[in-house]
Design a protein around this nucleic acid. Structure first.
Lengths: 189, 189
DNA sequence: TTCGTGCGTTGAATATAATTGTCAATCGGC
DNA sequence: GCCGATTGACAATTATATTCAACGCACGAA
């Protein structure tokens, strides 16, 4: 789970503030906070409440969405990801299915997943994605893949590729875990 | 200044949590917080720290940028704006110039501004926008408008319209405040 | 019924963020 | 040089978020 990076709000806020030619005190006055608070936030010595941050951003002004876009956008420069940095994106209602995504998706034209299917796991038939293509290779175990009516069981080394708009379904009929590495383009959801 | 709406994080978080089939306790465990905290946040009885919110969103998972996009996107449904709800967007370095924007801009194809120029106020010559058109009508006072070399002084009732990419400048040469209502499409910045 | 389990809520205690008042450092004007 | 004004930082206090440990409720199974 992507619990790593704890968002360097301080620097970003400081940068924005300076870009708008504001001192800590000026910004504080506009936002209804105090300069001390801003000092602490900018040095990342406290994590402001969402309410406080909103006051600050309103006073600059810049929206929350914009602020965090800028902030997280920089992840695009990230190249290497440790296994534990992949983010789990499966709905959790789907027992036994684990979809772990490489990086941020939103900021990339490619979405790569490390999928894991427990014995009996089933994505269910109703999986509608947006435009794009999906492809993957089975890394371990076996899995039944259904795409627009066509069914096969793939095993380690086998692969698939189809248009994301076609209805598709993955089921692990075996009694061992199945792992798949897949890719979608563009990020579909 | 848009200090009004204090972001209904609670409902949104609750919705997201339910959509992912998580209980408060499950989410709390994943995020390293407690169920009580989530209860309070969802009822908007506290404003979580950015760090706490990030933990929660990471555990769902969803990015901060995405979260606030969804949250602020809903403003699109907003139709009426009281005068005090317009957001000041002038760089603040420009003394005497006030640009107050209607709504959110980002989520709309149209940006409407209520502009106010103190006597002597000057936007400066270097104002480069993105593609699109700008137009406006002078509501009160007089103002000198320069667009790509052409200069005139407009007064109440007069208007202008030009391609945003042309260099343009507004100066209040008179000794009374000048007000202008203008529109740009698409939101240019 | 009577358990047991899991849900969301709440009050009191604790950890943390925000304010207050002050500090030294810096910048211009004289 | 001196001066007042302004900046960012810090320690101690106050306000607030978060935890902890209950509680009441709903649902199923014995």
């Amino acid at each position: 789970m992507d619990r790593g990076k704890s968002l360097d709000i301080g620097d970003k806020l400081k940068l924005l503030r300076k870009q708008h030619g504001l001192s800590q005190r000026e910004l504080a006055a506009r936002a209804g906070l105090t300069n001390g608070t801003i000092s602490l936030i900018e040095k990342n010595r406290t994590s402001p409440s969402v309410a406080s941050l909103k006051s600050l951003l309103d006073a600059i002004p810049i929206s929350m969405a914009e602020f965090f876009s800028i902030l997280e956008e920089e992840d695009t420069t990230k190249v290497f990801y440790r296994a534990e940095e992949l983010t789990e994106i499966s709905p959790s209602s789907q027992g036994g299915v684990s979809l772990r995504q490489l990086g941020n998706a939103e900021n990339h034209a490619l979405q790569v997943l490390h999928e894991s299917y427990e014995p009996g796991a089933d994505t269910g038939p109703e999986w509608l994605s947006h435009e794009g293509e999906e492809a993957g290779i089975v890394v371990r175990g076996r899995i039944e893949v259904t795409v627009d009516g066509a069914v096969t069981e793939l095993q380690a080394g086998d692969g698939y590729m189809f248009d994301s708009r076609l209805p598709h379904r993955f089921r692990n009929l075996s009694n061992t875990v199945c792992e798949v590495v897949s890719a979608c383009t563009p990020p579909s959801f």
